[in-house]
Design a protein around this nucleic acid. Structure first.
Lengths: 145, 145
DNA sequence: CAGTATCCCTACCGATACTG
DNA sequence: CAGTATCGGTAGGGATACTG
């Protein structure tokens, strides 16, 4: 649990699925790390209601103050934006700079790791978009049965 | 909402982040689709507690019966495995074949789309693993302040 | 401006018991 | 074997009010 000494998951070939014994290793590790799995961890972080939108907004504008970000996202509550940003900051995806002024000014921006996360999200978005028609028709088909 | 006529997100270059006006389009669409966004949809599907593990198990073994899958995952409740599999089936990631026998036999396996989803997950896993040290140290640093 | 603090509501999830 | 049905606990999230 200390350090991930050897990474079994190294899908450099996006077209092919790892098969056979390698998959068993991956599965075994996934089960092992049930309570501390980096994948689930990252997914959990971006799967809440506002993280992705916050990351996308920061990626778009570079730097945003709290209320500018809030206005940009639109319908997020003040509380939830604070919680979201603190979590992202804690994990190192977002940096937070406080300027000692009155009234206070706080600026948020993506860290390098945060930009990496956004790229992962965009990738997933790309794939999801291509799959969308299939998902929708599958759902409609499911309803009928 | 009917069909995604033009896909703006086409990150074929994994090394670079889309910048400028393209990002604004992406952000605008993400906000627009707040209540029906394919990305959030897919993320939401795989972000629950058991979907990823189920997909990984099915990807590993190819075909599994309900109780075999349950045993493989280990600590999932019967109810939650049923719910998880139904959701995955509804979206077209998992197929479910019922054999008219007594006692009943039901076999689950990944669809083609499900294998695609697993590949996306493995990709994300790969990235997450490389980022893990950074995330951990960021968290520890955060605690101190 | 950029937050906390409080309350409350809902969705997810687990345990247990029952069934075709 | 492969599920439902029911209940109850917990975490995510929103509304509102207050503050350095």
């Amino acid at each position: 649990m200390s350090k991930p000494s050897n990474i079994e998951v190294t899908n450099t070939e996006p077209e092919s699925v790892d098969t056979g014994k390698n998959m068993k290793l991956i599965l075994a590790r996934a089960k092992d790390q049930r309570n501390f799995c980096p994948v689930r961890d990252v997914i959990h972080r971006i799967s809440d209601k506002w993280s992705l939108l916050s990351i996308l907004a920061l990626g778009t504008y570079g730097t945003l103050r709290f209320n500018a970000l809030k206005k940009e996202i639109g319908d997020v509550s003040q509380r939830m934006l604070t919680v979201t940003l603190r979590n992202l900051e804690e994990d190192g995806f977002v940096s937070r700079k406080i300027y000692a002024e009155v009234p206070p000014r706080v600026e948020y921006q993506l860290t390098e790791m945060g930009e990496g996360l956004m790229q992962q999200a965009l990738r997933l978005a790309d794939w999801a978009n291509t799959q969308l028609p299939g998902i929708i028709s599958s759902r409609e088909n499911f309803k009928k049965n």
